[in-house]
Design a protein around this nucleic acid. Sequence first.
DNA 1: ATAATACTTTACTAATTTTGTCAAGTATTG
DNA 2: CAATACTTGACAAAATTAGTAAAGTATTAT
Lengths: 152, 152
Amino acid sequence: MLKLSTKGQYGVRAMFEIARGYPENPVTIKEISERQDVSVAYLEQILNKLRRAGLIKSVKGPGGGYLLAAEPDKISIAVILKELEGPVAITSCLDPEEGCARVEGCVTHLLWRSLGAKIEAFLETITLNNLIEQEHLLKGDRRDKIYRFDVA
Amino acid sequence: MLKLSTKGQYGVRAMFEIARGYPENPVTIKEISERQDVSVAYLEQILNKLRRAGLIKSVKGPGGGYLLAAEPDKISIAVILKELEGPVAITSCLDPEEGCARVEGCVTHLLWRSLGAKIEAFLETITLNNLIEQEHLLKGDRRDKIYRFDVA
DNA sequence: ATAATACTTTACTAATTTTGTCAAGTATTG
DNA sequence: CAATACTTGACAAAATTAGTAAAGTATTAT
Ligand code: FES
Ligand code: FES
């Protein structure tokens, strides 16, 4: 339950690859495709959304590619996912575009709202920079010190 | 993003109605259907799963219906949702039945795992009893004291 | 007994969402 | 001016969701 679509997952992984080129090194779709094992055509779709949202910039022509539009520690996972999958909305009653007539007096409504808020708050605390830090730890030998995103 | 299916939502709402009959008053599918606005046929499907999972008991014949199999404060939302929608698995890589070959060295994997763990932990703290408490507050006038499931 | 109540099970299907592919562009630079 | 690389929109197969339908079985009040 509570699955994330591949679009969101691939999007975060693509942003991570682009973040590795920050601040001067444009990363091509082809590179992202090879490193993250996602088709070029699908990535085009995803990166277009992210560019229109202003999260990345593109550089055309030979030597071109994608660049982060802000510092890696200023871009949260929450922002990326929201662009690709819309706001966190556990139930359609909570979706800004849908709503529900039963909200008043609905016992579960506040529960789902609270869960959504918790998820959002968590994803807002994680940035691309955290992913880069995480990678350094994964590549190093300090297994005992791996940063596990707060998992106890 | 991160939507819950209607099955899960309706399931929790149905369990809430059954909890109101605890410990001696069987609640019929028809009653649940009317109060929660879900078709009888669909509820049959949902309640069957929950019964097979041992969360509720059924009493046949006139005067029959469904009863909670345990105390309302012993049944968490997490348990209900797991029966109806399977385990929390933000990505298919985390799904016990699927897995992923890239797990080693995957930067985002721990992130999704951590998020899933947080969601699960939260849902485990909420019980049917909490929903009943919440209803009392909603019906009362103490708007200032509404229990909001921890939303700040 | 038996009729009424109420749960049980399986099968099926329409609608939606997801997960992509494809093709024909446009822009930039060496 | 050719190669590189982004850009856009249309389209479709596959999977999932959200139900409906029908034909049961079990129990009890009368
Ligand atoms: S059913 Fe929509 S808010 Fe509860
Ligand atoms: S892609 Fe499967 S674990 Fe990261």
